[in-house]
Nucleic acid binder design. Structure first.
Lengths: 333, 333
DNA sequence: CTGTTAGCGCATTCAG
DNA sequence: CTGAATGCGCTAACAG
């Protein structure tokens, strides 16, 4: 495999000039650059990541840390990140952190600390103080998508507002007996994404003077949503409307309702959050949060910081939007 | 950040011994190893990927090349790969190749050639001769999942048999007017995954003495499957059974059938391929191919090769299994 | 079993 | 604008 000195020889310049010409850093005459580029192309020369990184301190790679790979939201955000990063010649190094504590520590204490990446993007990760500190200790730009984290630069949807928007939509249709599927009151007590959506729900209800509502925790899967909706719908004071904190749970709720012989939205309204592509097929009304765009925004943000821009301190705000596809309507009871 | 010489000093040994103790390569006395491990732990030392890789030629990373990130099959296989690789301390570098020719070339000609990875796994990638050659030129183990490729070590389901299995299932139920949704006759003329499933369909029909069948190309999405099924079901000789080459298309077919007021399976049977988690909710009969397991198998295969095992020449075979969830039944017409 | 030595391939000084 | 020299941090011989 051709090395930088092969290129230097072929172009009749020194390795230093080859390096400058190929990286675009430092002055090179147009003539020299042309000869270098031609020689590099002819020889099929590609810079060695290890050597370049050892000498320069830069890696041209961004680490992306996710809790799940096989759920729609995460893979969609990841696709957005990938698009934006590849365009700029960056590689992606993927770190999937399970809930398993040991494996999780290994990612933060070992893998991420190998100096293999120039920046980190986290997706919907709930980090404890130690993990946040560990990330900061890397000394690279960090952008956290989804999940307000006081210790990091975040790029996040205002999930409190999302919860209020969805709930207000139901209230304006005239619903008074509502249920919320999502946050676990204990686990998500803090400012987690599920916790904020739940609080948005509660606040909107309080403002409307409604004191009672049903809460059913679920795990953000279709199955979890279905089970939770089943519990809610079998309660004595069954709700006329359900706000699920994700589209997958909302779809589960629709399926559960159908399974009980209830029509959506005539007998029960359902609204979700996400903008899952599947929602279209269920006529699901949702608060779209443009997952793919979130990934692109995050990638652009880290790239800007790598280009020397100031870190966007505090939190950047991501758009969201109510999309009415018909699964919500005025209550019939 | 602590370097290897800090650890060496703290442990009272040379850097060579630190390297040997930490990597497990080369002899080290138990006493020395213990002191090194303790010192490394205390100092929070983690080896620099670039320096280690430059000196050793190993990177402890595997490249994974995918055509899509945001489709169920790919993200599920990726999750399986990630699990298996992380357990062994390997990082994943992700390369998403679009259909865009320029971007695609960049991945093969630049990104993959930076010597950032010890091995490559490709998922359902249709490679032309040049791309295959480019991969082989990397000089690292390569495992291709899905997509028989005469030029590479592959790990693949026997998609011809999958096509025959699904089709035979329909024939045994008594269907005679069948439709297939999937391969494009021109694009997938070769030994592609869609092409093989289609040929399995054709062969099974031929053996049953059936000469005519409907073919509707589609793009492996729910929407594509729905449109294709719509076309098939509106043809003069509408089929009584549909074999879709993926579960997402099969779900689209079920939705299209429902949209036309047809019952599944009473009016039309539908069978898919994949084992998509969503299938359960549609009662979809399918040929499960255990996507997550495929990823794990592929990861294990490259790890074995990296451990010095002989490359499993030719093709490894992956399991598949008919799962009857009720969307197929004898024809009523 | 251990330490010494010599690079791995490139980016960056610093002179020129 | 260019080239020569230095070292990034670690691993792999080799000799002891």
């Amino acid at each position: 495999m051709a090395g930088i000195d092969d290129v230097a020889r072929a172009a009749g310049v020194s390795t230093a000039t080859v390096s400058r010409a190929l990286s675009g850093r430092g002055p090179v005459s147009a003539a020299a650059r042309d000869r270098v580029l031609a020689a590099a192309d002819r020889l099929g020369y590609v810079v060695s990541a290890a050597a370049s990184s050892l000498a320069s301190g830069r890696t041209r790679a961004v680490g992306v840390v996710v809790p799940f790979l096989d759920r729609w939201f995460f893979s969609t955000v990841l696709a957005g990140i990938s698009d934006a990063l590849v365009r700029q010649g960056y590689d992606i190094t993927l770190y999937s952190v399970s809930t398993d504590a040991t494996g999780r520590r290994r990612v933060f204490d070992d893998h991420l600390r190998r100096r293999r990446i120039d920046a980190v993007i986290t997706i919907a990760l709930e980090l404890d103080a130690e993990e946040s500190a560990s990330l900061r200790g890397l000394g690279v730009p960090i952008v956290a998508i989804a999940g307000p984290n006081p210790l990091l630069t975040t790029l996040t949807v205002d999930d409190l507002a999302v919860g209020r928007l969805a709930t207000t939509h139901l209230l304006e249709l005239g619903h008074r007996r509502l249920a919320h599927i999502g946050a676990d009151a204990v686990r998500d007590a803090g400012a987690t994404v599920p916790g904020l959506r739940r609080r948005g729900f509660e606040e909107a209800l309080a403002e409307a003077g409604i004191e009672r509502a049903l809460f059913e925790p679920a795990d953000f899967t279709i199955e979890g949503g279905s089970d939770a909706a089943d519990r809610a719908l079998s309660s004595p004071a069954a709700p006329t409307a359900i706000f699920a904190a994700s589209d997958e749970m909302a779809i589960g709720a629709i399926l559960a309702a159908r399974g009980r012989g209830l029509r959506v939205p005539e007998d029960v309204s359902v609204i979700g959050v996400d903008g899952h592509e599947l929602g279209r097929w269920f006529g699901l009304t949702t608060v779209d949060q443009f997952a793919r765009g979130q990934g692109e925004r995050a990638a652009d943000a880290v790239l800007a910081e790598l280009d020397g821009a100031e870190p966007a301190r505090g939190r950047g705000t991501l758009p969201f939007e109510l999309v009415d596809r018909g699964s919500t309507a005025p209550p019939s009871r």
